[in-house]
Design a protein around this nucleic acid. Structure first.
Length: 504
RNA sequence: GGCCCGUUCGUCUAGGGGUCAGGACACGUCCCUUUCACGGAUGAAACACGGGUUCGAUUCCCGUACGGGCUACCA
């Protein structure tokens, strides 16, 4: 029988969760949903030096905003495998137990080398032009460990609580093969794998040991993680094997990375000229926060949609998908092997697609507080009408103000390009007549304005609409002109034309 | 450097032994529009290179180049 699908997202609380991490979480989530399985949040806080305050809370908040909530784990209710924080599991002695087992079976050993000794070893190997300096089957013979030291000496050292680590005893020359769901068979010779530290001298497990122990104990069926883990996967295979748990090992899936748009490499928060965090992130060690997608005006649905299509696609020409649709369609078979450069421009387009799906009322509800902040109070009907007109011009809700502020504020400047090109000496007389014509309109609405305008043209000849637009709004472009005039109102429109004429 | 992974328009990608190599973003042109957009149409734009295998390779294999990842008592 197939194991129940149980996947985990297991970040370490060393900073804000960036978009690459969210994408990994998303693919885990989609896979779990697709198969009716569980999606677990496990916190891998085994590095106490890199622990960052607030990071864990941020991770939980970010997943919530994205709408990809785990159904088990830290911050998401209880589960039968508590605790879900590795520092707490360590207190329970869980990892020690497995490490002891590996030592007992001869697949791991104690190493007493100090930092200085390790440095010296690496320098020695580098000087000897060794291609890959590492603690391995060869070099461990010259180091201070339970393999080279006398038995009673080891016993003394351990009993006297001398600082030591537990290392995996990796065989010298052995082919290690594993089948990655996304990449297929990967083969690595064990000579390329170092004797990984399993238990650190502070008693904490390393990622390598901890994630395996937890994946087993939490009955994880698939380990879905970023490509950066591919090189250490062979070591993980060995650990499962030596623990006698190879048959219970989760299937592995290594996701391609999200790369910088320009230049190369993984997305870095410092260089990016677009948001990299879902929510704004204030690192306690830094002064300025990093703005998030949320604050940049992205809808979570859009953000998720963007991420989903980075490294995966459904094989059709469709591009807009809800999370629920993605969960139906998602499949590792259609996940790429190669990294994807992130395109901020297309990201904006995605957001625009979602913005257009919003109702005018929804947009108005968002815009009202913005408007109030600017010092304007208008009734709901007015704001809804405004949003209806301006929505087609924007990609983000925050652009409503910039794109349509002239509805609320009279222009002080008039688009130079249009004026230079179209404003003629006789224009003043012409628009003075238009002004007079508009003044006679009784009920100021789109239809009457249109009729009035047509009548004016019949009497006066062709009237440049863009010029009229600039006179009233100051800018060259915008929503349908008569709609705008109707919204701005009769007296305000007339005032503005009058003001403009007096200045030109 | 070593090891691992990868390589279709600028970008995200579809495709897969015989296709006009398809779509999307961005960009150009046109249509619609007395303004502005939306929309529609259309254009330019890609199989990294070299060898095989094959009647035929973008597709399969091998090299090379290039890119990325890893190379910690970090994850």
């Amino acid at each position: 029988m197939e194991k129940r699908v149980r996947v985990r997202f297991a970040p370490s609380p060393t900073g804000g969760l960036h978009m690459g991490g969210v994408r990994t979480a998303l693919f885990n989530y989609l896979f779990a949903k697709k198969h009716g399985g569980d999606f677990i949040l496990r916190i891998e806080d085994t590095d106490q030096n890199r622990f960052v305050k607030g990071a864990e809370e941020y991770i939980v908040a970010a997943l919530k905003w994205c709408g990809i909530e785990p159904n088990e784990g830290v911050g998401f209710g209880n589960g039968i495998h508590q605790p879900y924080r590795q520092s707490e599991r360590k207190e329970l002695g869980i990892y020690q137990k497995y490490a002891d087992k590996l030592v007992a079976s001869g697949h791991a050993y104690y190493a007493f080398d100090t930092e200085e000794e390790l440095d010296a070893m690496r320098k020695r190997l580098e000087a000897a032009k060794v291609a890959a300096p590492q603690y391995n089957a060869v070099t461990r013979q010259n180091m201070r460990n339970s393999l080279t030291l006398a038995e009673d000496e080891v016993k003394n050292l351990v009993e006297s609580k001398t600082k030591h680590v537990v290392r995996l005893k990796v065989p010298r020359n052995e082919e290690i093969r594993f089948n990655d769901i996304i990449r297929g068979w990967v083969t690595v010779n064990s000579s390329q794998v170092d004797d990984k530290v399993l238990l650190k001298s502070d008693g904490m497990p390393t990622y390598h040991l901890a994630h395996i122990v937890d994946d087993i104990e939490m009955e994880i069926s698939h380990a879905v993680r970023g490509e950066e883990w591919l090189p250490s996967a062979p070591a993980h295979i060995l650990i499962y094997r030596y623990l006698g748990l190879e048959d219970q090992m989760p299937k592995l899936a290594h996701l391609p990375l999200i790369l910088n748009p320009d230049g190369n490499g993984k997305i870095s928060k410092r260089e990016a000229r677009f948001p990299v965090f879902p929510l704004s992130w204030q690192d306690p060690r830094e002064t300025a926060p990093y703005i998030g997608y949320k604050e940049a005006g992205y809808y979570p649905e859009a953000f998720i949609n963007i991420l989903a299509l980075l490294g995966w696609n459904p094989g059709t020409n469709e591009e807009i998908f809800s999370v629920a649709e993605l969960a139906k369609l998602f499949d590792f078979e259609r996940v790429h092997k190669s990294g994807a450069k992130f395109d901020p421009e297309k990201a904006k387009w995605f957001n625009q697609q979602y913005l257009r799906k919003k109702t005018d009322q929804e947009l108005a509800d968002y815009f009202k507080p913005v408007l109030q902040e600017k010092g304007y109070n208008r009734d709901n009907e007015f704001v809804v009408s405004f949003c209806k007109l301006v929505k087609e011009k924007v990609q983000f809700v925050h652009e409503f103000w910039e794109q349509g502020k002239y509805v609320f504020e009279s222009p002080t400047l008039y688009d130079e390009k249009v004026m230079a090109k179209k404003w003629k000496p006789e224009s003043k007389t012409l628009f003075t007549s238009v002004y007079a014509k508009f003044k006679t309109v009784k009920e100021w609405k789109v239809e009457t304005i249109t009729t009035s305008f047509h009548e004016a043209e019949a009497e006066l000849g062709k009237i440049d609409m863009q010029l009229l637009r600039v006179l009233v709004t100051g800018v060259a472009g915008g929503p349908q002109l008569f709609d705008m005039l109707a919204l701005i109102g009769k007296s305000e429109t007339l005032n503005r034309i009058e003001t403009a004429l007096s200045k030109l």
